[in-house]
Design a protein around this nucleic acid. Sequence first.
DNA 1: AATATCCGTGAGAGCGCTCTCATGACTACT
DNA 2: AGTAGTCATGAGAGCGCTCTCACGGATATT
Lengths: 340, 340
Amino acid sequence: MGEVSVRRQKPTLDTVAAAAGVSRATVSRVINGSPRVSPEVKDAVETAIGKLGYVPNRAARSLAMRRTDSVALVMREPDATVLSDPYLGNIIIATSQALIGTGVQLVLVNARNDAEHSRLADYVRSGHVDGVLLASMHDDDPLPRLLLDAGIPTVVGGRPQRHLPGLSYVDVDNVGGAQLAAERLLHAGHRRLATIAGPRDMTAGSDRLAGYQRALSAAGRKADRVAYGDFTRESGEQAMATLLERHPDVDGVFAANDLMAIGALRCLRAAGRRVPDDVAVVGYDDIEMAKYTEPPLTTIHQPAVAQARTMTEILLTQIGGDPVPDPVVLPTELVERESV
Amino acid sequence: MGEVSVRRQKPTLDTVAAAAGVSRATVSRVINGSPRVSPEVKDAVETAIGKLGYVPNRAARSLAMRRTDSVALVMREPDATVLSDPYLGNIIIATSQALIGTGVQLVLVNARNDAEHSRLADYVRSGHVDGVLLASMHDDDPLPRLLLDAGIPTVVGGRPQRHLPGLSYVDVDNVGGAQLAAERLLHAGHRRLATIAGPRDMTAGSDRLAGYQRALSAAGRKADRVAYGDFTRESGEQAMATLLERHPDVDGVFAANDLMAIGALRCLRAAGRRVPDDVAVVGYDDIEMAKYTEPPLTTIHQPAVAQARTMTEILLTQIGGDPVPDPVVLPTELVERESV
DNA sequence: AATATCCGTGAGAGCGCTCTCATGACTACT
DNA sequence: AGTAGTCATGAGAGCGCTCTCACGGATATT
């Protein structure tokens, strides 16, 4: 009984201090690698730590240091999208990998609606994390402003629609990428182009549409064949059907993401159009799945991993006290496969 | 200057107490919803909280309560696998969704190798989380035992190879699912069956192989055509090539997961075999991608979402002090598509 | 040899919260 | 009317850690 309780009770700094015959402060110094500790004492303390199996308590440390050594990754999406969007999964994994070895922990926060969102703001302000990574923001989102005002280091993934001074973000060159896609279609000789655009309230959606339009107007063409989707496969299928109905002569389509491109592919197959012979298709994101479609999808590579890594690095330097850096825009590139 | 600093300084319980003209203890009661507070005082406190924008500090609360209201989701995978395996993404998202509304936060921990693993054990023991969810365990993993010994509530996803008494897990009926798959192949008239099995050191791998073997021996056949992969697409492609070389007459293949099945499909296509006419293929997992392969993949639906949800529920009840429940095994079902 | 400097160490004051216990003011019982 | 019980509230002791400051002994300076 007594022995069990002795073993049960978690050792604290004081326990270790007593075992090593020194003061609590000295043990703390050893743990935090202070240079002002004599080697003998250091050894004694480390032996005691090993013998007792001591592990510092994070809550106590956080309280004393006003630091938590953890960051939040906030995503805001309705359930369905989240589950089927591989881009987000990549961001999550890449972020967690970027954090390995830094001693910083990742807290995943899924806020679906506004109510949850305001709770989230409280959560963050409660000091449970040192900084916030914002993924997949919609435009009207009040969160960046809230966090900025609260003085919480924040990095946004993608360009926020309204630029807030002092808010750093890591975007991907959506305009350039979409332009690349449209040019590819043009170069292949397709002339009756259409696009399946993303939601207007997300910059990724509007930027890609802008890039597409830029490429077309540079080639002296009108970009007036547009159908909108919401980045899901179903919406892409639907949008393609609309396009086919309105413009039966279409011979090339740029879809603002791969999921919608896959939907378009399916619609096209059902309509008896061959890809790429009758209609060429270019997607956007280069998700894993794009390699296995029939035909494999030509698409724009989205550097999700690099983006997550960059966001993490920027966040950590900001937490470390560095000034807010300029926004970063990562380059995109065309991945040639067989759908054009 | 002075005003800024007033605004800057985060309010604490004492600040609120002073503003409301009560004691700290009373404010604490209000925050924690204690019934023993008069309505007037409660109002006064809530007004003060609102006016000051007070948010409780989690670290301090954790320290005092010896509870953190957060759980860890630990995954152990080499980078590449993690990034391309959609199953894991689903587990992550489903877990985060299951936690919504519980007030419990999710900490994502990515331990790739043993060194990181032992650090992880320390991390968990440091009391930063109240419980642990273990996803995608390899067999020799010392972690479950470590956590069990440390008295940390733990739930494992999938059946651990060696059953530790007191360790609860939520498994999927791998044996039954694989059996279903093999039977489907048999019923379709395929007789020269082979299988692409998963790693021997993961129970998901060996269980699925066992199910396949059971179905075959029930049908009076030998299950001696086996090639092993590691659950990646590339390994599936490779394994299929091996199978084709060793048994050119094969007319049906069960792959232990969809990724490997997709690899097999690709290999088969390259070899000029038609699916399902020449060779039928059944996968396992029912990942999103399986819908879009050519032909769409017949597979076993893996209830990843239900599994994550169940694991989360069990973990929370254990944290709440309930006894460790019996292991749960979730049923699987066949999803008929066109590859058989 | 006397004073100044440095360095390893300990004492102790917080960090912001919860929780037990004590304290009065009331209500309820005999 | 007197005692017991109830209830809202406050005082204060931790929770486990970090960090400032003080202290004494060893080393460097003049």
